Simulated assay, not measured.
Amino acid sequence: MRLVGLVIALWGMTGAAFAQSPAAALKNCLPPREMQEAVAAKGVVAPASAVMTARRQVPGADVVRASLCRNSNDLVYVISVLQKDGRIVQVMIEGSSGRVKSVR
């Protein structure tokens, strides 16, 4: 999927955050309007930036889901990517800084 199409798709996606680990139930993600507001208020990096960071962490994988979620008092992007071998890897990125928190 092209990056522009992915960014547009992100606005419509909801999903889940890691509670403590990727295995935790997915919940507490922002609906599209709140996600747009968080980005517009410059409280979090743009979704495209988070996706590009995730792609650098897992080269050659396809992004299948990207969500902005609450994790404790922080907002994090949870990016799920599909590797060529069929495994799903989740990359958690700090919303405020755009830094990688974990890759699992």
Rank of each mutant, 00 (worst) to 15 (best):
D85G: 08
Y77E: 07
R70S: 09
A41V: 03
V51I: 15
C69P: 02
L10A: 12
Y77N: 08
Q90F: 01
A40R: 14
G60H: 07
M13W: 10
M92N: 10
S21H: 06
V39P: 01
K101V: 15
M1L: 10
L6R: 06
K27N: 00
Q90E: 14
V76T: 08
S72W: 13
A9V: 09
V64E: 11
L10D: 13
D85H: 05
A41Q: 12
A23C: 09
L75V: 05
S97I: 07
D74T: 11
A17Y: 05
S102C: 07
D74Q: 14
N73W: 11
R56V: 08
I79Q: 00
P59E: 05
P47E: 00
R87S: 14
V7I: 15
S97Y: 08
Q90P: 03
L10C: 14
G98H: 08
V63T: 06
R55C: 02
S21K: 09
S67I: 04
L26R: 13
I79L: 01
N73C: 02
C29N: 11
D62N: 13
A48G: 15
I8C: 05
R33T: 12
G98S: 00
L82Y: 02
R55A: 11
P32S: 06
A25I: 09
G15N: 05
D74P: 01
V100A: 01
K42D: 13
R99I: 04
V51E: 04
G43Q: 15
V100F: 02
R99V: 03
N73L: 12
A16Y: 06
M13Q: 15
W11H: 06
A54D: 07
A16G: 14
G98R: 01
G60K: 01
R104E: 12
V64W: 00
S21L: 04
S72F: 12
V39L: 04
P32D: 06
A61F: 07
Q57C: 08
N71A: 14
S97V: 01
L75C: 07
A54W: 00
N71I: 04
S102L: 07
G95F: 03
R2E: 12
V51G: 02
G60E: 09
R56P: 00
A23F: 11
R104P: 10
A24S: 15
D74R: 13
M52N: 09
V76W: 03
D85A: 08
A16E: 09
R65Y: 11
M35K: 10
A41Y: 04
A19P: 02
M1D: 13
A38I: 02
A61G: 02
L3R: 10
S67F: 08
K27H: 08
Y77G: 08
V76Q: 12
D85Y: 05
A23N: 13
D74W: 08
R70M: 11
L26Q: 15
A16V: 00
E34L: 10
V44S: 05
A41G: 03
A24E: 11
I93S: 03
L6E: 07
R99E: 10
V103E: 00
